[in-house]
Write a protein that binds this DNA or RNA. Structure first.
Length: 307
DNA sequence: AAAGGTGTCAACCGCTCACTT
DNA sequence: GAAGTGAGCGGTTGACACCTT
């Protein structure tokens, strides 16, 4: 049985929006809100448009604080980093760029940024800008050097975008001063990697028990302590494990309870990483939480801390 | 100047997910 | 639990602008 259409296709207008239609939609939503029902909105607003079309027009063009125009180098960097880590989850990437829409970012990536990166990379590196899931070769072990990890290592080293260089890469050295607020009363190991990254856990293995559970708990505790520090809000956290990498913006209003909730749920599920990660991003306070999959926690893992 | 090629981006399509009945 | 429904998402399309020959 096919699905019922969301609107009467024969009686809705398609194609570009006229200024009059824009005005009607904007006026209606400003006065009445969306009412949580896009399907009925066009009729109420006096528009011969599909509800989905109205929603898209509002979200991508009419709503307040939409940013149009050139993307900054910083925005480029964030897009590249997130794309390398989570792939084409444009809505999640958009959530990290205030004023930008997923459609905008998607178009920008497909038409400009991807080419920009390609032009900067030698042919042999072109596959490295693919998100992790699309890379056919296995993810290198964390026992290898930082810049041997795919994607993120070179992406985070761009300012503006530049090539990865194992020789010139300055990231891999310890720097205790980055660990402000990070409690060392757990036995969790950590490394700091240059001025941009702090790695939670050890490179080879951060587990302190054979099954990894204790190390995991300690890692979480350490992470929580770290995040509770006033020094460490509004930062990007990059986590990685044997199969994937992920990165989240740490909300300024990070709360301990939410961290517990988030971690606790994740640790007991063992579900597919990507799915759960996305769910966490969506469900946890504007998508600003880190998720960890238990099965993957048992593998080599680390979290990197960007600022 | 005209034709063809390319780039850009707004909008559409079809799908999944979450929620309700 | 199954079916129905709406919201939201990512991939794709198509119209238009601009560039090249």
């Amino acid at each position: 049985m096919g699905r019922a259409p969301c609107c009467d296709k024969a009686n809705v207008k398609k194609g570009p929006w006229s200024p009059e239609e824009d005005s009607k939609l904007k006026d209606y939503i400003e006065k009445n809100g969306t009412g949580g029902n896009w399907i009925s909105l066009p009729q109420k607003a006096g528009l011969r448009r599909c509800g989905k079309s109205c929603r898209l027009r509002w979200l991508n063009y009419l709503r307040p604080n939409i940013k149009h125009g050139e993307f900054s180098d910083e925005e480029d960097r964030i897009i590249c980093t997130l794309y390398a880590n989570i792939g084409s989850r444009w809505s999640i990437i958009a959530a990290q760029l205030p004023g930008r829409t997923d459609n905008d970012i998607k178009n920008y990536w497909n038409t400009k940024l991807k080419k920009k990166l390609m032009n900067l990379l030698p042919q042999s590196h072109h596959n490295t800008i693919l998100p992790y899931q699309q890379i056919s070769s296995p993810l290198p072990s964390h026992s290898t050097s930082f810049y041997n990890q795919p994607n993120t290592s070179f992406i985070t080293n761009i300012e503006p975008i530049s090539l990865p260089s194992p020789i010139s890469n300055p990231f891999y050295h310890n720097q205790e001063s980055l660990l402000n607020g990070f409690s060392t009363n757990t036995s969790m190991q950590y490394n700091s990697i240059g001025e941009s990254v702090v790695m939670f856990g050890s490179e080879g293995s951060c587990c302190t028990s054979s099954d990894g559970s204790l190390g995991k708990q300690e890692e979480i505790m350490g992470f929580q302590n770290f995040m509770q520090s006033s020094h460490n809000h509004n930062k990007l956290i990059h986590g990685s494990d044997g199969r994937g990498e992920y990165l989240v913006d740490v909300n300024h209003h990070w709360e301990n309870e939410k961290v517990n909730l988030c971690f606790g749920k994740e640790i007991t599920t063992g579900l597919d990483y990507d799915l759960e990660y996305i769910k966490q991003l969506i469900s946890c306070n504007n998508g600003n939480y880190l998720s960890i999959d238990e099965n993957k926690m048992k593998e080599e893992k680390s979290m990197y801390y960007y600022y």
